[in-house]
Amino acid sequence: MSLVLETRNIDKHFYKPKDFHVLKDISFKIKEGEFASIVGKSGCGKSTLLYILSTMDTEYTGELFLNEQLITGNSKEELSRIRNRNIGFVFQFHYLLSEFSVIENVMLPAKKLAEKSQKEIEQNAREKLEMLHIGHLAEQKASRISGGEKQRVAIARALINNPTILMGDEPTGNLDSHNSENVFNIFRRLSIEEGLSLLIVTHDNDFAQRTDRIIEMEDGRIIS
């Protein structure tokens, strides 16, 4: 099975306010179709690691591979393109563009990619929304829907370009157990039915237990 994501000896320091070695020698691999979770105490560096993996943070040493291609050291433009094409990201806070409608939010990354016609993009976006049971909200303003709905819109947006991997930083952190369960089921189905790889940071033990693999972190290291 091919590798979707691989890190080799990633180290990161924060230099302000004082030198702080936040990530220490991080090496691990995610296979295609794998549903992995990252757990660990607050402050152990989970989010920091995820920002590096998502190519938004480039200040680290070590090597990062995506689809078996080294992407460490690529230009910012190049990284934007990779992010747009290959990585879907879901935040703890839903982060939608509040002035745009739900469907416009979902369509935006695909419009940027510009590989499909406007019509196809809109149709894809509707399919994703339907799949997440929020098709009826398509024309709503993004600021006028509930938190759980927003989170699902964010997932739809992350999926619009059919990425190779979906990353989430506590995507269920702000949801009640019912909605949380809902999101988990969506992830599970995507991993099985579409062969999507997922890497989800979570504090929810129950959630983590049901994933294929748990990566545990402590003090900036992976301990299992």
Binding site: S80, L96, K112
Partner: peptide, 16 residues
Amino acid sequence: MKDIAILKATGFSGND
């Protein structure tokens, strides 16, 4: 600010 961060996170470049 937040919108800008989202746009960048979803693949819009600094120039965009």
